[in-house]
């Protein structure tokens, strides 16, 4: 067990329970929460855990601010979409698309890193912003390739679609969508464990050292530029793989689902809510954020009705104000848990 977790104990009972609940809920989501909407939410949580964790590998461990993370996410998604579009439906095309997306993401990340990290970390943030914007424009312009603003529908193998029926298990109809979910779940679990491994390796320790004091890390013999470049590269490749899974899951890819700045902001929020510099923070932050995003509206609608006899309160709780409350939740969480929920649970300052 400790080996699977790379010796990274949650170090808090509450956190361990929380993580176990999230893991079990995701592992049995199709049976525990039947219905396409909840499965949609569960898949999104899986994928965003990987995306957020891979971003935290950069920000929380390496101390590098990047705005291009969704671009790498998009590269994986478009890789699958374009490969299937050109080569026809099939697992081979799907795998090839994911592989090419990952490699391209890795190379682009390496180039950006080597060009800009030498100079200064802040320069890196600006470069990534510029490149991500440029790529977003490019994607919407090259419509014969990428489908432009409309995006592309992806014809994935039939076994992964709802049309493929398998029968019933525990009273739940198992179809291709459930298989697809388990592809996503397994892929994300493996990627997460890989990242857990990375951050607890000697390499991960160097990243933490660089975040703490890059000047010192360099002085004791670590070539900071190379370590940062490596972290950027790995983080981009993992984000791309998450993107591939997302495209397969949605059977669609478009600028709004992968490349948008709103997604970049969501990622940042999830990292901060969960806690920077810990992989488990990504799990908790993502789960809470995605759930809030998907169910806060309903919850408020319910509360608003339940309090309809009272003055003012039903108005405040009106479902239209869910975004406001999400903002309030965010501010409160940053105020009370400046080191994120996981940082708080682990008792670090």
């Amino acid at each position: 067990m400790m080996n699977i977790l790379s010796g990274d104990r949650p170090k808090s009972v509450i956190l361990s329970v929380l993580l176990a609940v999230i893991l079990l809920a995701l592992a049995f989501a199709p049976f525990l929460f039947p219905g396409s909407r909840s499965l949609e939410t569960a898949a999104r949580i899986c994928i965003f855990i990987v995306l957020v964790a891979s971003y935290d590998l950069l920000l929380g461990y390496g101390g590098i601010v990047s705005f291009a993370h969704t671009m790498f996410f998009g590269m994986g998604a478009y890789g699958v979409a374009i490969a299937i579009d050109r080569l026809g439906t099939g697992y081979g095309a799907m795998g090839l698309g994911a592989l090419v997306g990952m490699v391209v993401a890795g190379i682009v990340a390496l180039l950006i890193a080597l060009l800009s990290l030498r100079v200064r970390a802040i320069f890196f943030a600006m470069i990534t912003l510029a490149i991500a914007s440029a790529v977003a424009v490019l994607v919407s312009q090259l419509s014969q390739f990428t489908g432009g603003e409309d995006g592309m529908n992806i014809r994935i193998p039939r076994e992964l679609t709802p049309a493929f029926r398998l029968g019933e298990v525990f009273g739940t109809r198992v179809n291709g969508k459930v298989l697809n979910y388990y592809l996503v779940f397994t892929g994300c679990l493996v990627l997460f464990l890989v990242m857990l491994r990375l951050v607890n390796s000697p390499f991960g320790r160097v990243l933490q050292a660089i975040r703490e004091n890059a000047f010192r890390a360099e002085a004791i013999g670590y070539r900071v530029v190379f370590y940062r470049a490596m972290a950027t590269c790995l983080s981009a490749m993992i984000a791309a793989l998450a993107g591939s899974l997302f495209a397969i899951w949605l059977r669609y890819v478009g600028p709004s689902t992968t490349l948008g700045m709103e997604i970049m902001l969501d990622i940042l929020l999830m990292v901060v809510i969960g806690g920077m510099g810990t992989m488990y923070g990504a799990v908790v932050g993502t789960a809470i954020f995605v759930l809030a995003q998907n169910y806060l509206k309903e919850l408020m609608g319910g509360l608003s009705e339940a309090t309809s006899a009272l003055p003012v309160i039903p108005d405040l709780l009106s479902p239209d104000r869910w975004l406001l409350w999400l903002g309030v939740l965010f501010i409160l969480s940053v105020y009370f848990f400046p080191t994120g929920i996981v940082g708080r649970l682990r008792g670090t300052r």
Partner: peptide, 18 residues
Amino acid sequence: LVVQARERRGFNLWSMAM
């Protein structure tokens, strides 16, 4: 971290530091 740097093991990605 200093000993690890001196022994040039920083680029070890897949083993556990512990």
